[in-house]
């Protein structure tokens, strides 16, 4: 099927274009503006060139936040992707049980992010939380507000709780889209379970897995609310990630210039990653469609 060429289709895209341009382009221009000026008040601005950029690129605290961010994202991806595949594979493929499980699994995805933080705060506190109390009663010295390792562990556990279901839903629908004949052919060819996974399921899940990794990577790079509620970035700076650092800079300290410069670098970093991934999974998509 070939689409018709029709430039009047632009008219239909116009509302979206207007809305998104309003709320993306104009603010971004403001950010660019801020990033190259030192602003004292509305009438008192000095052009400073790349000074803010140089400042933030040299900022050791930012480096620390960036490393923590990378470590955290790698951590949650390494757990959530394989776990999501495992659970999706363990689910019955059809029927009301499958639907029920899907609804149940989708719940964490629909809870406001700060409530997710609250839930884990209540759950993990050593004095009133179920997990905290259990760990303490086992003789472990567990306190996520005081011990960075505990805080880190709790954050990862929370993120796994919050987002693994997204991977499950994606992989599950990917698995459901595989025609029965592929399994039958492999069975007749004498393939065992591992070979079926390796040669039938994995190649056909390539697209959904690409999307799952992309989304989880992007969202984990932008994580803000949950650690804000749970640990507030502490103890110390041990759970301060990029978004928190940025927000602290912009709203807390009102360092508009550096914050704007940081915003731009942050945005471009994520866009580049996104684009890299997009072009990685796009050819795969074309192949499966052919």
């Amino acid at each position: 099927m070939r689409k018709r060429i029709n430039n009047r289709a632009w008219l239909m895209v116009l509302p979206v274009l207007f809305l998104v341009a309003m709320s993306a382009v104009i603010p971004l221009m403001t950010v660019v503006n801020y990033s190259v000026q030192d602003i004292f008040d509305d009438n008192n601005r000095v052009y400073v060139g790349l000074e803010w950029f140089i400042q933030i690129i040299r900022d050791p605290e930012l480096h620390a936040a960036l490393w923590r961010q990378i470590l955290f994202s790698a951590n949650v991806l390494a757990i959530e992707i394989p776990l999501g595949i495992l659970i999706a594979k363990a689910m019955p493929r059809r029927g009301s049980v499958a639907t029920g499980l899907l609804i149940f699994f989708a719940i964490p995805l629909l809870i406001p992010w700060n409530v997710v933080g609250t839930i884990w705060q209540i759950f993990a506190r050593p004095d009133i939380g179920m997990a905290g109390m259990s760990l303490t009663s086992l003789g472990l010295d567990y306190n996520y507000t005081a011990n960075p390792v505990d805080a880190w562990f709790t954050l990862v556990a929370m993120d796994v709780w919050h987002w693994t279901s997204l991977v499950v839903l994606l992989v599950f629908s990917g698995l459901r889209a595989i025609p029965e004949a592929y399994y039958e052919a492999a069975q007749i060819d004498g393939a065992n379970r591992w070979q079926m996974f390796r040669h039938i399921e994995l190649p056909r899940l390539k697209t959904v897995l690409g999307i799952a990794v992309l989304l989880r990577l992007m969202d984990s790079l932008m994580i803000y609310t949950e650690p804000f509620v749970l640990t507030g970035g502490g103890p110390g700076n041990s759970t301060t990630f990029l978004s928190q650092y940025l927000t602290r800079m912009a709203v807390g300290q009102f360092d508009l210039g550096p914050a704007a410069a940081f915003s731009l670098v942050y945005f471009i970093m994520i866009l580049t990653l996104c684009w890299l991934f997009y072009s990685l999974i796009s050819p795969a998509e074309e192949q499966t469609e052919r």
């Binding site: 025609p179 004949a181 039958e184 052919a185 060819d189 070979q195 190649p203």
Partner: peptide, 25 residues
């Protein structure tokens, strides 16, 4: 052995490997 209505092939490996698949198993 069975041949299906729509060609069922392992798309990520070569034609040679497709033919070799049942033998390797």
């Amino acid at each position: 052995a069975q041949v299906f209505q729509f060609p069922v092939l392992y798309e990520h490996i070569s034609v040679f490997e497709n033919l070799a698949f049942p033998l390797r198993n």
